[in-house]
Design a protein around this nucleic acid. Sequence first.
DNA 1: CTCTCAATCGAGAGTCATTCTAAACTGACC
DNA 2: GGTCAGTTTAGAATGACTCTCGATTGAGAG
Lengths: 162, 162
Amino acid sequence: MPAYETLLEKLRASGLKMTPQRLAILRQLADNDRHPTAQDVYDGMVAEQPTLSFATVYNALGALAEAGVCERLELGGTVLRFDPNLDPHDHAICDGCGSIRDVHADDDAPPGRAPAARAGARERKPRELTGFHVRRVERIFRGLCSACRRGGAPHDDHQPGR
Amino acid sequence: MPAYETLLEKLRASGLKMTPQRLAILRQLADNDRHPTAQDVYDGMVAEQPTLSFATVYNALGALAEAGVCERLELGGTVLRFDPNLDPHDHAICDGCGSIRDVHADDDAPPGRAPAARAGARERKPRELTGFHVRRVERIFRGLCSACRRGGAPHDDHQPGR
DNA sequence: CTCTCAATCGAGAGTCATTCTAAACTGACC
DNA sequence: GGTCAGTTTAGAATGACTCTCGATTGAGAG
């Protein structure tokens, strides 16, 4: 969960211009573990920047992702999500309410095995797979969050299936 | 890679009606390891069923997935893909050409560790993750296929990024 | 064989997230 | 002031699905 200053530093280092729109996006992303969609980011920004265009949000998020300030997540479903957390980690997605939660290597493990595999599994180094050059491994845990398991009906904090 | 007869058997067992459209879809899916999109399936069908509607393909694929005859894959990107292979397996996606390839537990392993983790990793049993009830674990290897590594320019067998 | 009813199909419109386009703006440098 | 690259903006376009609703089909009843 990088703080605003951390993201700002990355943006500065990337050589991209520091426009008010981009800074506002960083503010939206800072300390945000909800994996916001472009829509979420836009919604959070229009209050302070009423003239903001949707296309700008897409452009800026794209540029930031390109520059390594945040990460584009394509976790299935039709929407792009953005994650300021660049540490290697996995995601748990609730089939009920659609909420997404980070799963870190040091998170609690299923009996006998860490979710992100004890050692050497999540290293960012490329690996081989008969000719296929692996650059990145994504892991997605799908299931039900505690809230959705309890109340049969999902509590709609997030957008459900569609 | 289930054969046509296998899929047919599953469809029969599901209690769904065996319509010509559905049988044609099964024919498209049988022995197909290319993870076709709805569009691909449709393209393969219009030749023999020129009156076919796109909506029918979506309906039928949805029904088949629901019935457990095939699997809906949401591997990121904007398109749904369908996979007749229901065995637990992972997917390797080429960042260059977008091709998708199955990765099985017994596939060649990165030095010292199997892609689908030697044992107990891909079992279908639910697991715990502080309150999160894991039903399914998806793993996606992203990187470059051998063809894209060789020729710098991706060979466009499949749709590239977008 | 004819009816009836539910399941399914088909055409086209609708929805939604995202991308494109072209014009306007901004700030740095000459 | 002029020029240029990088950005922003509005709005149109795109593409993948989804919905609606009337038409068709087919299994079983009579």
